[in-house]
């Protein structure tokens, strides 16, 4: 009887998996020389600074972080509608780690940049990669109100590939909308800012549901994000108040980066 139950449970799970996740979470790039990057949110105003810890990823894979040859990395900047604003080429100096102040790159056409991707040189032919692709997964550091210490977070989704000079969204989405419940109880007094990026090639609609007692979900505002676009959703929680949020969308993994701002300090983490 137990065996029958286990088998039935497995069949049910496989059926649900086919229904909700019929493809891989992310696509492999279409070209073997491609490199992958996450889309990293930018927070840049009089309250916030964004930095990026740029490493010699190719060297770390190859087992050598002493980079004698010139090594150039391309930062691609996007606005919140997913439009490519511009590219900045940065040379990785022959040191262990380079902290890039994103604000210093955001001049001219990049002033309205909301996200960026970081593409390293192709590794094809340099290291045997067993079908894998070099990937830049972060870290971004965010400083709030000149507190002198950054909150770090790694990239959220394996979002985009640079393949033969073209940027290719890698995220998959399904046919049936599904919920992603943020695995965190919101506690006040605090302002929560949920930052979403759209790693798919489609426009994605996301609807916020919020609950103060977990038994009754209230559908609130919806928003749409273009391919490679981004959106920040803000929720204010009063003192002694708790709340839960979930997001309905067709994204396979509708996981936001969460900024919690409270008592003149902040906390950044994956939701």
């Amino acid at each position: 009887m137990t065996d029958v139950l286990i088998k039935a449970t497995k069949i049910k799970r496989r059926a649900k998996l086919l229904l909700f996740i019929c493809k891989k979470l992310t696509k492999a790039p279409s070209n073997s020389s491609a490199v992958i990057s996450d889309l990293f949110p930018i927070r840049n105003n009089n309250l916030w600074k964004t930095e990026f810890e740029l490493l010699n990823v190719l060297g770390l894979i190859a087992g050598e972080n002493n980079q004698k040859d010139p090594y150039w990395v391309n930062f691609y900047f996007y606005d919140s509608a997913g439009g490519l604003l511009g590219i900045r080429e940065i040379e990785i100096k022959n040191i262990g780690r380079t902290t890039i102040k994103i604000m210093n790159l955001m001049d001219h056409e990049l002033k309205k940049a909301a996200t960026f991707a970081v593409f390293h040189p192709s590794i094809l032919g340099k290291v045997e990669m067993s079908g894998s692709y070099l990937a830049e997964r972060g870290y971004s550091g965010y400083e709030y109100q000149n507190l002198g210490v950054k909150g770090y977070v790694h990239g959220n989704l394996d979002a985009v590939a640079l393949s033969n000079g073209k940027v290719e969204p890698l995220g998959n989405s399904g046919f049936i909308p599904r919920y992603y419940t943020v695995q965190h109880c919101l506690r006040g007094p605090a302002k929560y800012e949920f930052v979403f990026t759209n790693p798919t090639s489609k426009t994605i609609k996301i609807t916020l549901n919020i609950s103060l007692n977990k038994k009754k979900w209230l559908a609130k505002k919806s928003f749409t994000m273009n391919s490679l676009g981004s959106h920040t959703f803000t929720v204010d929680i009063e003192e002694n108040e708790k709340a839960y949020v979930r997001f309905k969308s067709k994204l396979y993994l509708g996981r936001p980066v969460v900024f919690r701002i409270s008592n003149d300090s902040m906390d950044v983490f994956h939701g």
């Binding site: 992958i36 894998s132 692709y133 997964r137 870290y139 002198g148």
Partner: peptide, 28 residues
């Protein structure tokens, strides 16, 4: 930990497999 106590920062470092995606990541 800010010496003032007013800011804390916590993040995990990546394993080497996170330098690549797809394919045989364990082998890499």
């Amino acid at each position: 930990i800010a010496k003032s106590g007013k800011m804390l920062s916590l993040e995990h470092t990546h394993p080497p497999a996170s330098l690549v995606l797809h394919g045989n990541r364990r082998a890499i």
